[in-house]
Amino acid sequence: MNTKINHLLSDLTEQLNFIDLEIDNEIKRCEKAIEISIKSKEKLRVLIQKTNFKSEEEEIQFFKEIKPQFTSKIIYHNTIFNIEMKKPNGGTRVLKKYYNNELIKLKAFFDNELEFYKYYRTGNIYLDYKYFLRGKCDIKLSVNSYYFETDKTFSTSHDYKVAKILANDLIQLYLENQLIMIENKDNNEKSQRKPNVKMTWTSSKVALTELLYALHSEGVFNNGVADLKDIAEYFEHIFEIDLGQYRRTFLEIRARKADKTKFITSLNENLLKRMENSDDVI
């Protein structure tokens, strides 16, 4: 079952990525994305109804971690569709107010769901058997009215809330990006904002080299076709640093006996610690 689900999710992600590249109009892109996401979720529903979970733990994992990834995409694109459809015609001041009001609506959701939000974000599991098992609805645990209209064979009391949290994270990023673009337009900037301060790389050259190779391996620049040499020169330019013989440095990194990706490991650990300890929305 996991293989089929992973294939469904991978296929959905691939289709949505293709839409992002092919359709420029935000409203049309959302319409197509909603259509595709609904079809994918329906395939997931059929798959689950044909399969029995091996244990309660497997069922909890599905409704806590897997299904929300599908539902969140529908929520996200539907919300953006409505936001853009209702967007007022006006100058930058009007648009800023509009998008900021939408951000306030998001904050209201997090305020209303603060208890569950903290439970989910901090990785708690002690109420999972009530939140993410079918037929375990407890009205005392702040259940949305939406739940009572859902297919109980494919829903739990809180899987939709998880999807809403995932979607709202992306909606917030979208709204903030719109505000940034408006601000850039005000400043007659048609690309990225110009930084107000100079950034200096204060970690080691070895760490920067490790990051350089990691990003090149991931193919994050120019759709994966950027040359390592070009990326290295770009890093040297923006950080005003001489990486020297970075290829030899990489060989030394590769020859480490313990923790070959020392810097990347540290990045991962510190980011996870920040996520666990942060009380912010993001």
Rank of each mutant, 00 (worst) to 15 (best):
E113K: 14
L47E: 11
K67L: 08
D259R: 15
L133R: 04
Y76H: 08
I23A: 10
F18L: 14
E26L: 09
S157Q: 11
K41D: 07
K205D: 07
L251R: 15
V143Y: 00
R247H: 14
F132L: 02
E59C: 11
G90C: 07
I182S: 00
F116A: 06
H7N: 14
E84S: 01
P195L: 14
K205V: 06
D138R: 14
F109H: 06
G135L: 11
K229Y: 10
F263C: 07
A214T: 02
I23K: 13
D159S: 09
F53N: 04
E269W: 07
K73Q: 15
K194N: 11
A214S: 09
F116K: 03
I48Y: 00
K28Y: 11
N101E: 12
F70K: 07
T209E: 01
N25H: 12
E233I: 13
I5L: 15
K43H: 13
A214Y: 04
K194L: 07
S266F: 11
L16A: 15
I60W: 06
G91Y: 10
N52W: 06
T122H: 12
Y98H: 03
T200Q: 06
K152L: 12
F239D: 04
K198S: 13
L170C: 14
L251A: 11
V206I: 13
N196V: 08
Y246L: 05
E56M: 15
P88D: 07
P68Q: 05
E35R: 06
E102M: 00
L208S: 02
E252M: 03
Q49D: 12
S72W: 09
A232S: 15
